[in-house]
Design a protein around this nucleic acid. Structure first.
Length: 847
RNA sequence: GCGGAGGUGGCGAAAUGGCAGACGCGCCAGACUUAGGAUCUGGUGUCUAACGACGUAGGGGUUCGAGUCCCCUCCCCCGCACCA
């Protein structure tokens, strides 16, 4: 009750007790001025150094959340700072506006995805403008509009022409809840990245993009070109791409007239093979079922059914029980010619390698577990270097380390490293194996059984089969006037006017592809589009992207480490291959900002611990919201939301405001003269002058090099404290105050652009602050007159003394030794050594 | 299990190997006040009456000097995890 009273009467109590600066009026005033003056528009200009500042564009889910505010506030500081530092800055925003939530919302609210999405975009655009972000709005890209997605279709067709796009029937990830298939990257720990429901495998014919063609380059360029990325992300991508070197070999199955191919990284263990295992999805399994006796065949079918019905979580959990089925078939060992039993096993992945393995239980823990369970023999072919002789019957676990080869004919006695090379050489000479590189990265499954996405530009002709839609017929428009009735049923399937068409080849009857593209396709090149907004002839102009790309600073969440950030890198490489761009890596520097937490856990609607940016902006203004979120933690840390902290930031801005307002006459009367350090005698004023310029130096460095906005803001708070603390009323002091206030306002402006524009204007400046150059640090003002020298005895601080700066080492030493306290402390002891750091410290080592 | 990033006051956090805790929050005291959740001033790591001692997860090491470098251990967070 009491709480409620204070909340609802906040402004009334404020009016009575505390009159804050009029942030709402001021913020709206400057937002309008910026908009009217087009001051954030940028054009390619070869005579200027460019800077492309990019933020991961939002999905228009309805409203901005604090994560967005953090992301975009970081970006805006950089954009504004660099603009002031004479860079030609490209900074804009857009909406990643295709995707499932729009369909779900359409069902829930009985609306249309199109309508819902555009309304959200309108709302969020207002929010972004209300935050004062300095976007060039002319460059905005909205992916769900035909003028954008037609170029998705166009790029897709270029990929098709180059053989990068293909259709394939395969066991693919299926999310029942979303009613669609998912790419590999979009399944994490066996669950759907979006809805967290377990994913199962389904055999479907789908569109894929051959990202694997670029696997090696995607890997190589991580270390070569992505030094400006967090190490974490580089490692995540490296692991995701998952390169492994090995060999391919095959086992003949004469009975079935088939050759089982297998990939191994340990060809040196080839003599230890005691079984072959196939994934239940392996093509040979079908052949086996067909050629087995009915009784056995039925059992095998039941086994396959049981295993494939398991969800990805169950199947891919390393701790899950290994299940096997012994088939009556045998493969021939490629060297010894022995008959090796063939099993079907649940732990063999159908989509890695060949979906079949050579089982070496002595040297692979998974195979070991499997063999112990099913009593398959275990033959060691490597012994530890310590002389132990392994025995397959008694081994407790697989020996996976390097060692000495045994039980392997002429290779016995070789060390593992040597054995791998020699055996592979021998294997290749004798046509037993072939060296091969395998990647964990899979081709990108691009089809989605959803309505709200880019239509895949293909038709199925009764006569000609799968036919691409000719480029001059693009876009294939997505009908907007639809009713989404249920999840998992695309309304396109009920729209004959969309589905029924004619074949571009033969003019006969054809049916359109009703699947749409993964929305990650849209976000893989939107930054290129920012360079050439509204281009009607191409996705973007070559000259534009060659000027602006690559992105100099990208800012976004780490959750895209192995999603968007891999897809976009792939796109950059593909687009350069077809001559459209030059930058093979799209993002030179990456900053992954931390999450915004509330009471230690992530803000989320479902938990109900969110803070609505609108309310914060209404209560304290955009400048305060920005300041708090930048001050509370360094950008890459998680940030705990604190209303108290917000109040602190608000207090600071009021403190700045009040100072200028209360001292405005004097400040205005002392404009235009910069007092140089050498003109100042008063030590207090010399300190003050030094403070002004050390602030410029530190703030510049913190923004530019460290991207530590929290410490930059701390320095500005110190400057404000110094301004308040200065008592001197001399003319010189007044001029210095004026200088300090100008510096403060300018340096604060990237963080809090509105209040600083207003103050700048109040101070009598005529130009908009956002266009004014950044402050220049006067190095001569940094010179220290006196320094505090620490006297240590045996490393412990025993006194602090003021000394003139720049004293020579020996005179400093002497002067410290002469100090009474020091003399007392070292009395009766002998000096072993003195370490002196000029202007800092003298450490006397005594015995 | 593997890989990565961390562990500093009551809290968020600062510290090119050189005064640990800048700045902010909170707290305490004072001033101005009819009033204070405004504003201003001062204080605020722990122990101690004090001198002083101790203090950056714990233990060891290098160094004149370690939050920072090296080794071991513990704890939290993140990513990967049957990838042959």
């Amino acid at each position: 009750m009491t709480d409620n009273f204070f909340h609802t009467n906040f402004f009334i109590t404020e009016v009575i007790f505390f009159m804050p600066y009029e942030f709402e009026k001021i913020e709206r005033k400057w937002q309008a001025r910026w908009q009217d003056s087009n001051c954030f528009h940028s054009e390619a200009d070869a005579s200027k150094e460019k800077f492309f500042c990019l933020e991961m564009f939002p999905y228009p889910s309805g409203a901005l959340h604090m994560g967005h505010i953090r992301n975009y506030s970081i970006g805006d500081v950089l954009a504004r700072f660099l603009r002031k530092n004479a860079k030609n800055v490209l900074y804009t925003i857009g909406f990643d506006s295709f995707g499932m939530p729009a369909e779900n919302a359409a069902i829930k609210y009985k609306t249309q995805p199109h309508k819902w999405t555009l309304e959200n975009i309108a709302y969020m655009t207002n929010q972004l403008k209300r935050m004062g972000y300095s976007y060039d709005w002319r460059r905005e890209a909205i992916t769900c509009l035909p003028e954008y997605y037609r170029w998705n279709q166009w790029i897709f067709l270029q990929m098709y022409k180059r053989g990068i796009v293909y259709q394939k029937e395969a066991p693919v990830n299926w999310c029942e809840n979303c009613g669609t298939v998912l790419a590999n990257e979009q399944v994490s720990e066996g669950v759907c990245w979006r809805c967290h429901n377990p994913v199962t495998k389904k055999n479907l014919k789908q569109w894929f993009i051959k990202i694997t063609d670029y696997a090696q380059e995607l890997l190589d360029d991580i270390e070569k070109d992505l030094q400006g990325w967090p190490k974490r992300v580089r490692i995540m991508q490296t692991n995701w791409i998952g390169r492994s070197e090995g060999a391919r070999l095959s086992f003949e199955v004469p009975e079935l007239d088939y050759k089982i191919e297998a990939f191994t990284t340990r060809f040196d263990t080839i003599y230890g093979v005691t079984f072959i295992a196939l994934a239940p999805e392996h093509e040979l399994v079908r052949k086996m079922i067909a050629s087995m006796n009915p009784d056995e065949s039925e059992k095998l079918q039941a086994f396959v059914k049981k295993v494939t019905a398991q969800s990805s979580i169950e199947r891919s959990d390393a701790k899950a029980e290994k299940l096997g089925f012994k088939t009556p078939f045998y493969g021939t060992h490629p060297i010894s010619g022995e008959k090796i039993p063939i099993w079907i096993a649940n732990y063999i992945l159908s989509d890695y390698g060949t979906g079949a393995i050579m089982g070496v239980p002595a040297h692979d823990q998974r195979d070991f577990d499997f063999c112990r369970k099913y009593n398959i023999p275990i033959i060691p072919v490597i012994n530890p270097t310590d002389g132990t002789i392994l025995d397959g019957a008694t081994m407790k676990h697989a020996f996976e380390e390097n060692g000495i080869v045994c039980n392997s004919d002429k290779f016995n006695g070789l060390k593992t490293d040597e054995a791998i090379t020699k055996m592979l050489d021998w294997g290749e000479e004798n046509n037993i194996c072939k060296r091969e590189i395998n990647f964990k990265l899979r081709d990108w499954l691009i089809s989605r059984q959803r309505y709200w996405g880019t239509p895949i530009p293909f038709v199925y002709c009764d006569k000609c089969g799968v036919v691409p839609v000719p480029e001059d017929q693009l876009p294939v428009r997505l009908p907007e006037d639809v009713e989404v009735k249920e999840v998992g049923h695309s309304p396109l399937l009920d729209l004959p006017e969309f589905l029924e068409t004619t074949c571009p080849h033969c003019g006969g009857h054809a049916r359109r592809e009703a699947d749409t593209m993964d929305t990650f396709f849209c976000s893989s090149w939107y930054f290129d589009r920012y360079c050439s907004p509204g281009d009607e002839k191409a996705p973007f102009e070559k000259s534009d992207v060659e000027y602006w790309m690559p992105v100099d600073q990208y800012i976004g969440g780490i959750e895209h480490a192995c999603l968007h950030l891999i897809y976009a890198r792939f796109f950059a490489k593909f687009l350069t291959d077809i001559g459209l761009t030059k930058a093979r890596e799209p993002f030179t520097n990456l900053l992954t900002q931390g999450m915004v937490l509330m009471d230690g856990s992530k803000m989320s609607k479902s938990v109900g611990n969110t803070v609505n940016p609108d309310e914060i902006v209404a209560k304290y203004g955009a400048d305060t919201a920005r300041l708090f979120i930048l001050f509370a933690a360094p950008p890459n840390n998680d940030l705990d939301w604190s209303e108290r902290g917000v109040e602190g930031s608000f207090r600071f801005l009021n403190r700045v405001w009040r100072y200028v307002e209360d001292n405005l006459d004097s400040l205005k009367n002392h404009n235009g003269k910069i007092v140089k350090m050498h003109e100042i005698d008063n030590p207090e004023l010399r300190d003050f002058k030094r403070k002004i310029h050390s602030t410029i130096k530190d703030v510049t460095n913190d923004i530019q090099n460290e991207k530590q906005f929290n410490t930059a803001i701390a320095r500005l708070m110190e400057l404000v404290n110094s301004i308040y603390a200065l008592n001197d009323k001399s003319e010189q002091a007044e001029f210095l105050r004026r200088e300090a206030v100008d510096v403060l306002v300018n340096c604060l402006s990237p963080f809090c652009p509105h209040i600083t524009e207003e103050l700048w204007e109040m101070l009598g400046h005529e130009n908009m602050l956002c266009l004014e150059p950044w402050c220049v640090c006067d190095e001569s003002a940094l010179v220290q007159d006196s320094v505090t020298v620490v006297a240590q005895i045996n490393g412990k601080v025993r006194g602090k003394f003021a000394r003139a700066a720049g004293l020579a080492k020996d005179s400093l030493e002497k002067s410290i030794l002469d100090e009474k306290i020091v003399q007392e402390k070292i009395a009766g002891k002998s000096i072993v050594k003195i370490i002196t750091v000029p202007d800092k410290l003298v450490n006397i080592v005594v015995k």
